[in-house]
Amino acid sequence: MLPQSVLSLWEAIRTANEGPELLLDPDLKLWALIPISIVMILVGVAKQCIMVLVSPKSKTVPRVKLTEILYITKARVLLGNGSNLSSESFQMRQEYLAQVLSEGKYLAIKPNENEKAKIENPFTNSSMTDAMTSMAMGNLVNYIPQTIIMWWVNYFFAGFVLMRLPFPLTIRFKQMLQSSVMTDDLDVRWVSSMSWYIISMGGLTPVYNILLGGSNLDKLDVSAQQQQLSQIPGGPSPQDQMKSLANDITVFQHVSVLDDIEDRVLKLYS
C-alpha cells in the first residue's frame, strides 16, 4: 500500500494534467449542439439532392462496348485472384481468355489495317465534357454550403465549449478539438463548436447513407464510364489492352492455394 501523501500527490498531478473541470450550461446542447448537428444533416441531404438534379443523366452503353469492358475486367480479375482456383479451372480459363483476347474477338470497334487510328479531341468527346461539368458542379455544391455554414458557426457559436468526450486523447488532438477556444491548460477532451462542425463533416456519412438509401450506382455502368473516360489521347486502346492481357495470362505462373490442402490441414490440426 502506498502512503496517503503519495496518493494525494498522484491525484494532484493527474488533476493538473487533465486541466480544470468545467460546468457546462445544459442549454448549450439545446441551443448550440443540436442546431449545428441538424443543420449539418439537412445541408448534407440538400447537397445530395442538388447533385442528383445537376448531374448528367447516365448514358446507355452499347452491348458490344460493355462486352469488351467485361472481358478486359475478367482477364484482370483472373490475374489478380487466380490463386483461389484449382489448376484445372485456371488452365481452362487461361486458354480461353488468351485466345479470345489475342484475336480481339470481343472488340467493340474492329481494327482496320488500311486505316490509321484517329486521335479524338477530348473536348469534343461528350463523355469527357459531361465528366468535367459534373466534377465542377460537385466542387461548387460542396464549397458554397461549407463556406456559409462555417461562417454561421464561427459567427454565432464562436468560443463555445459544447461537450466532453468520454475517452482520453493525446495532446495532438487539442488543435483539432478546441478550435476557436483560446486556452492552453484545458483538457483535450473538451470539444468546441467549430471543432464539432469539422468532426460532423466527416462523421455524418453513415447518416446520409441511412437517409438516402446508400449508393445505388450500377457497377457495370460505373465501369463503362471509367473505361470511356480512360480513352484519352496517348492512352492504351482496348486492342492494346487485350493483347497485353493475353500475353500476361499466357506467361502467368499459376500457384493454387488448393494444392496439397488436405496434407496442410492434417498437419495443422494433427
Rank of each mutant, 00 (worst) to 15 (best):
L217E: 12
F123D: 13
Y71M: 09
S87E: 15
S256D: 04
M51Q: 09
K118S: 13
D130R: 15
M128S: 03
D187V: 01
K65R: 14
V222R: 05
I232Q: 10
V257T: 11
E113R: 09
L7F: 02
L169E: 01
R172S: 14
D218V: 08
V222M: 10
A108W: 03
G19N: 05
P236F: 05
A32N: 04
N121C: 10
V77T: 07
M242A: 05
L23P: 00
N112K: 12
Q94T: 00
P26L: 07
Q228S: 08
P168N: 04
S215Q: 03
L140D: 02
E95D: 12
L66K: 11
L217G: 07
K219V: 04
S180K: 12
S134N: 12
V64I: 06
Q4F: 10
L186N: 00
M182K: 15
I34C: 07
E103R: 15
S270R: 06
T170A: 07
Q146V: 04
K118R: 12
V64S: 15
V39T: 05
G213M: 01
R172D: 15
L78G: 00
D221P: 01
M137G: 00
A16G: 14
P62M: 06
G82L: 02
Q231H: 09
D218E: 11
K110D: 01
V77R: 15
Q94H: 14
Q227P: 01
Y155S: 14
T147K: 10
S256T: 08
I148Q: 02
S223F: 02
F173K: 04
P111Q: 03
